[in-house]
Each structure stands twice: as structure tokens, then as C-alpha cells.
Amino acid sequence: PEAADLRSLAKLLLESYLKYFPLTKAKARAILSGKTGDNAPFVYHDMKSLPEGERFINCVGLVQEPTDEVQLRFFYSCQSRSAEAVREVTEFAKSIPGFVGLDLNDQVTLLKYGVIEVLIIMWAPLMNKDGTLISYGQIFMTREFLKSLRKPFCDMMEPKFEFSVKFNTLELYDSDMALFLAVIILSGAIEELPETVSTSLELQLKLNHPDSLQLFAKVLQKMTDLRQIVTDHVHLIQLLKKTEVDMCLHPLLQEIMRDLY
């Protein structure tokens, strides 16, 4: 009976994951491996291709900054997409059994500390060693292009690529990802809640990957790596705020990153 409860928890979280994160790992891998036929993504490979690809960026709630500079417009649309992704993660968090019953301040704390980790984990399936899908899979941005940007922007994505390429070798399914995201969100200050979800993840990994030894331990180990990536990312953003006088940071992202690490 206990295993049945854990399985139903896994099912519930997968349903919620599919509801809030439409670009699943399965879909992303299909796009990246060219299995989507004529719907291949537009490729960003240099500055000239940025304005050409703007028609593919259909971000809702795009920050309307008065700028003609294409790089800045792109930067603001990235921020809008990130804010929207935070909203999606919040809705997913609210669907985790027990989450909304927590004190509201505890919910804020868990989201503040977990949401960037969740976003980086969710980004991993959109990446391969050559680049990343963005804009709901409509655009592929090459790793070389990102590395060619001026400092410090060129340093922003490379650690995420290195992490993602390694993380993707674990070959988790969307159903595993749903549980892992819930574990990340709940693994802040609260002691008892994560146990059920993490036991469910452990069971699920054994069922889904019977030949992959110690997979649960390997997945949990990634949380340590993630914490460092988020810390470095936040420090980089804080540096940008000091050095890039024209840069505006989205208020929701400011809230999350303020006093984070």
C-alpha cells in the first residue's frame, strides 16, 4: 500500500508537470535530434541572426523597454521568459501535496531558494553540447555564439552547458524530472515533507532505470552542483547590476536574487 501511495504521488506530480511545462524533455529531445520534420527551430548563430529570429519570440508579457538595440531587446525578452517560467514553477509548487498548507512565509522561502535551481534543471533537457533551445523550442541558440559575446555575458551560460551535458547522461524521463523538481522545491528548510517525495523519486528511479546503479544517489548529488551554479549565477547578475548602468532587471527576478547568496 505504501508503494501504491508513492506511485500515485508520482502520477499526480507528472500530471502537474505536463500541465505547467508544455515543452517536455521528450519534445525537446525530438526537436534537438531533428525528428520534428519541417518544424526545425530557427538558429541563432551570430548577431545578424538575432533580428531575423525576433518573429519567433512570442513571449507574453514582454517588457516594453524603449530601445532599438536588438541585443537589449533580446536580453529583456529573456528576462520576461524567465519571469514567466518562475510563474509556471510557482503553479507547479502549489500542486505539490502539502505545499499550500505551509506558512506563506515558508512557501516564499522555499520558492526563493529553489526556483533558480529548478529553472536550471528544466533547462538541461533543452541543451546539448552545441547549443540550447529557447522560446518554447522555436529557436536554437548555438553555444559558440553565446561564448562569443563580450564579457561578462560570455561567462553566463558556459557553466550551465557543462552541468547540463553531464546531467543529461543520467537520461531521466519526464516522470523522473517531475519528482526531482518537487524534491528541489521542498528541500529548503522544511524537514518532513521532502521525505515522501524523495522516497517516491527513489522508487520511481528503481522502476524506470533498473540497470542504472546508484542513480538516486547520483541525482541527489546534482543538487550540490546546482547550488554552486546558482550562487555563481547570482553573483554574476549582481556584478552586471553594478557594471552595466543601462541594464534593468525584472522586478520579480530582483526579488528572488536579492539577499539570496
Binding site: 507574453v60 508579457g61 520576461s80 519571469a83 514567466e84 518562475v86 510563474r87 510557482t90 503553479e91 502549489k94 506563506l104 512565509n105 512557501q107 516564499v108 522561502t109 520558492l111 526563493k112 522586478p251 520579480l252 526579488e255 528572488i256 536579492r258 539577499d259
Partner: peptide
């Protein structure tokens, strides 16, 4: 926390639309 995280609070209490963000 509430004063410093007004948008997060709002997201947690309501299903804020992307446009409101």
C-alpha cells in the same frame, strides 16, 4: 519577507497572469 517579496506572495496567493507579471 512579505514586504520584500510582494510579487512572489501574489503569485502564491493568486494565479497571476503573464501580462500582470
Amino acid at each position: 519577507l512579505k514586504e520584500k517579496h510582494k510579487i512572489l506572495h501574489r503569485l502564491l496567493q493568486n494565479s497571476t497572469s503573464p501580462v500582470e507579471l
